[in-house]
């Protein structure tokens, strides 16, 4: 028996080494090993311990363990019949940063790379400031995809915009193309990338690679397992709703709502609509807030708190 953090504290590599299947729950006597051992693949020579359903420990060649991650080629297609949408309820966000942390953990990112960023915005001097979590908007008219010279970033049939870091040449044109400052660049090799240990898939955006661009991916690897993206799963306030727009349903895990009704009743909008990028992320305005805005400054790391020092609010309140 081993412990593992609820929120995937243990890296997937260790998990694999200690026996992928030893830990896997065997549902009603069903077997998982068959799904993951592919004997047809050529041997790599590296052995990995695995546990059969009978409880026997066997040694399997690493190349024979099929990763649940989807290949690069497959990742271009998109999950059939789906079109994903995210709704972020600004009234509930108190900058707990659990979305950021879970996302970084899930994607094996260093602290200096954030796929999800939480901004502290104030639209004008007299208007009220609010917390603004910002993932990738997975636009339907994605300028980042248009400007990519090598097709390393692409939009799939399910609306998700992914990056293939095996193809990316690192020209950073997509970063200037995106008006939402969504994309991050690997300015060097970060040791966190090595903790993954699974083969690369654009659907997991991991392991990262020096000299390439990456960004929020809507976690299609989790969606395939029927799970919500890391940010939506881990938000303690249930700020982030996610779902299939063709099904007209979004959920934050504990609450499942009709997307069209939610947007209608709460006056949902898309950020900077006038840019014509047609995002897949909607915001619910910060009305009837559940927390005072300065709650977001509590329990913050000093370096994170300092980010908001130069905002008009931060200056007035001497953060």
């Amino acid at each position: 028996m081993e412990e593992s953090n609820d929120k995937k504290k243990k890296s997937r590599r260790e998990f694999l080494k200690k026996g992928f299947l030893a830990g896997a729950g065997v549902v009603a006597g069903g077997s998982l090993i068959a799904a993951y051992v592919d004997k047809s693949a050529p041997e790599s020579g590296e052995k990995v311990k695995a546990l059969t359903t009978n409880g026997e420990i066997i040694e399997v060649d690493k190349a024979h363990i099929k990763t649940p991650r989807v290949s690069i080629e497959e990742s271009h297609k998109g999950i059939p019949g789906r079109k994903f949408v995210m709704v972020i309820d600004l009234a509930k966000c108190k900058n707990a940063r659990k979305c950021v942390e879970a996302c970084q953990k899930g994607h094996f990112l260093p602290k200096s790379q954030e796929f999800m960023k939480v901004y502290f915005l104030q639209d004008s001097d007299k208007s009220a400031p609010y917390w603004f979590p910002k993932p990738c908007y997975h636009c339907d008219n994605p300028l980042c995809v248009s400007v990519c010279p090598v097709g390393a970033t692409y939009k799939r049939s399910d609306g998700i915009v992914l990056i293939d870091n095996e193809r990316c040449i690192g020209c950073k044109f997509c970063m200037t193309g995106c008006p939402y400052s969504t994309r991050v660049f690997a300015w060097k090799h970060y040791p966190e990338y090595e903790k993954d240990g699974q083969p690369y898939s654009p659907e997991a955006s991991s392991p990262g690679k020096e000299g390439t661009v990456s960004k929020c991916d809507f976690c299609p690897d989790l969606i395939r397992m029927g799970k919500l993206p890391y940010c939506a799963q881990n938000c303690p306030m249930g700020v982030i709703y996610f779902g299939d727009i063709d099904e007209d349903t979004v959920t934050n895990g504990s609450e499942t709502l009709k997307f069209s009704e939610l947007i209608r009743d709460r006056a949902g909008y898309r950020y900077l609509e006038m840019l014509g990028t047609r995002p897949s992320v909607y915001y619910l305005p910060p009305v009837d807030r559940q927390f005072p805005v300065n709650r977001g400054f509590e329990d913050l790391e000093e370096s994170v708190k300092n980010r908001y020092k130069n905002t008009p609010y931060g200056k007035n309140h001497k953060l």
């Binding site: 010279p149 097709g151 193809r167 040449i169 020209c171 020096e210 000299g211």
Partner: peptide, 23 residues
Amino acid sequence: LCIGRLDRLHYLVLFGRIQSPIT
């Protein structure tokens, strides 16, 4: 010098997309 992965420079020709101003 701006390009992060010079080892993949030939991708510009191999996988060039006409829509990109870089192409």
